[in-house]
Simulated scan of single mutants.
Amino acid sequence: MALIIVVVISTILGMLLSGVVGYYICQLKKARKRAQQESNSYKDFKEESQQSQQSQHGDLELPLFDTSTIFAATNKFSYENKIGQGGFGPVYKGQLPSGQEIAVKRLSQDSGQGLKEFMNEVVLIAKLQHRNLVRLLGCCIQGEERMLVYEYMPNKSLDCFIFDQTRRKELPWEKRFNIIMGIARALVYLHQDSRLRIIHRDLKASNILLDSEMDPKISDFGIARIFGEHTEEKTKRVMGTYGYMSPEYAMSGHFSVKSDVFSFGVLVLEIISGQKNWGFYHPDHDLNLIGHAWKLWNEEKPWELVDKVLEESISINDVVRCIQVGLLCVQQRPEDRPTMSSVVSMLSTETAVLPYPKEPGFCMESSFIKIDSSWSGQDPCTANDVTVTTLYGR
């Protein structure tokens, strides 16, 4: 009996000892794996940067922040410092030791954005310099942490104003027109004047940030594409926001600078009306905002599209010209849409005779959409990010 007890106790002790040893071995492997991941992440980041520099003939001079600096700046990503939630993760306000205010985009580990999309945004924004593009101050990549550090925009995004019943009053027509022109000039820079030539692919109200003077800055280049000799490309994975996508991109994956032009046209109509294209409601018909604007245009009363709070600050001729430009940008066929340089010219020259717009794409709301959970997310003031794979327009 005593022998049996000794054997049992020895067996139990042996199992416990094996368990303890196994646990410590497992923890040691995890620690080594984390260290290796951190090393590999940084190595991949450097390699991607070097490859990008070689392929684009430029130097990527971008500060690399360490996590301790970012943690201190954002008070360890406290809830009080959170200023937004995007499809790829939360955004926090922070302050560097120098006193400079920053916005930190922290990539969620379960988001659909990987190192490729992260690097895409880093490389693109680091090489772009325009007063109407958000400025990237640096990035941080340590272990599984990936963060982008931007200049802080005190007025957040455009959708926080134009779709808010109270704050929309802070944007009279003069400021709204200035925002339209700023976005247009930034797109001219992206499409033809910058050394990279870029298609944004996700232009929308929540990606237009506003500085202290209410000047617009385009942000979020996570799915932007560089184009060279080929002016049109095709992708199997359509990513973006329903309501702003051009028909050819949403339905077949074809995208070009004219895809951005379509999105810009939607933005123009939203800025003028204070209404969202996605989810627009009218008691007399089932048209979306684009369709409603087209209907009013054909009835020769386009001014009825204008936000009611603008009635005392608008010039009818100016606003009708902007509506016409917006409708030219959202025409069904890409070849019918103007270039952004033509748009700037049409908006700037009051005496120019504008072409008559043809029927736009996606006049009706459609329920034939499939949401890609790897991309969908929420913005600080809206929740309308979905990936569209099937749509029917007319």
Rank of each mutant, 00 (worst) to 15 (best):
E174Y: 13
D110L: 13
R337M: 01
K236D: 06
D66F: 10
H292S: 05
V21F: 08
F118A: 02
D318S: 15
R394C: 11
D44H: 14
Q332I: 08
G279D: 04
V320S: 08
S39K: 15
P302Q: 03
Q50I: 11
Q378T: 13
V7M: 08
P357T: 04
I223R: 05
C140H: 06
E248A: 05
L391C: 12
Y189M: 05
L136A: 09
E229T: 12
L328G: 08
Q53G: 15
E233N: 15
K82V: 06
I9Q: 05
K234Q: 11
Y244P: 10
E145V: 13
N81H: 13
L3A: 10
D66Y: 13
E38K: 15
Q54T: 09
N155M: 13
D159E: 05
V123I: 11
P360F: 02
Q324T: 12
R237Y: 01
A72T: 09
I316F: 08
S256T: 07
L269A: 07
Y23L: 15
T11N: 10
Q50F: 12
M340T: 09
S273L: 02
F177T: 04
P63M: 06
D336A: 09
Y242G: 00
L17T: 08
D372R: 09
T11L: 14
K169W: 06
V319C: 02
F368W: 11
T166E: 08
R168G: 08
V306Y: 01
Q165C: 11
S98I: 06
S55K: 11
S376N: 13
M340C: 12
D164H: 14
P302A: 01
D220M: 05
Y150T: 01
V268N: 01
E229Q: 11
V309M: 05
W173N: 02
I183W: 01
L203I: 09
V325P: 01
S373P: 03
R195D: 09
G326Q: 01
L354S: 10
E299H: 12
A72Y: 05
L327V: 09
V238Q: 00
G138Q: 05
E359I: 14
L267V: 04
V8A: 10
I371G: 10
R195L: 13
G240Q: 06
G19A: 06
Y242I: 09
M364F: 14
E229H: 14
D284V: 07
L210T: 04
N132D: 04
L62P: 01
P154Q: 03
Y356S: 15
V306T: 12
L210D: 02
S41K: 01
L327Q: 10
A103I: 07
Q165Y: 07
S273K: 00
A73T: 13
P334H: 03
D44K: 15
